[in-house]
Design a protein around this nucleic acid. Structure first.
Lengths: 125, 125
DNA sequence: TTAATAATGATAATCGTTACTGTTATTATA
DNA sequence: TATAATAACAGTAACGATTATCATTATTAA
């Protein structure tokens, strides 16, 4: 089902996600918002995050364990700390031509790409 | 717990994973092996796949939904078909210097990287 | 050959996520 | 601005993937 009607809950979810840059999980967003919206439902958070990532307003990031969400819809890269499992933005310039170049190595059509660096963040070192 | 003792089950899992190139899930491996090992346990498959991927013998690939496993431990890239969710190898040359280059954009140490192309495979087009 | 214990099979428990259901809020129209 | 249609909601049950537990079996070293 596409988004047609407005809702306070969805506004709050988008707002929360755009204000923080730590790529929270659905449950982390839920816990943050529940303080001021005591009868918010976890299912509502999941439903909205999925709708928003399907229509390209936000990004869903699957790196094992729980999915993370990113309010920045523009393609960019991430680093996953293998110790604390936190996910960081990496401002490495996006490889604009990699999808075109990769076409020769693929049987099909490429629509996007992701790069994830794995390592250990400074607070874990 | 690190691997110390030998087991038929682990041999069979490694063998199965190295013979096929379709990046099966734990359950797919389990179902294949169960034909000739009727009392193989799914937990055994998971336990061994995790141990093997921890010590670098195989790769675990998390792309949403169930984890996939790859008997080729050398770094290489993948394409995920957004239609059928199958995972394909992409023989795009590995960007040997990207981790060094990315270091400037990261607070921490990078140990590896993955690239996943998203698209639609030929059998779905 | 025996003793120590890693690894197993079977199953219960957990975790993240989705589906269901009756109620509420939003929106378009009279 | 009342009414009707229905998207979105809260609460909860169900689900699929994975991990944990535990008694038994297989491997290995002495």
């Amino acid at each position: 089902m596409a988004i047609t009607k407005h809702s306070k809950q969805r506004d709050a979810i988008i707002n929360e996600l755009c204000q923080r840059h730590d790529h929270p999980t659905a449950e982390e967003i839920y816990l943050s918002l529940k303080i001021n919206m005591p009868n918010l439902s976890l299912g509502t958070v999941y439903r909205n995050l999925n709708m928003l990532s399907e229509d390209g307003t936000i990004q869903k990031i699957s790196v094992g364990g729980a999915d993370h969400f990113d309010g920045n819809a523009k393609n960019h890269y991430h680093m996953l700390c293998s110790e604390c499992k936190r996910l960081y933005d990496v401002a490495y310039p996006v490889l604009e031509d990699i999808e075109k170049k990769a076409h020769d190595f693929v049987d099909g059509r490429i629509t996007s790409h992701t790069i994830t660096f794995i390592g250990v963040c400074n607070s874990c070192l």
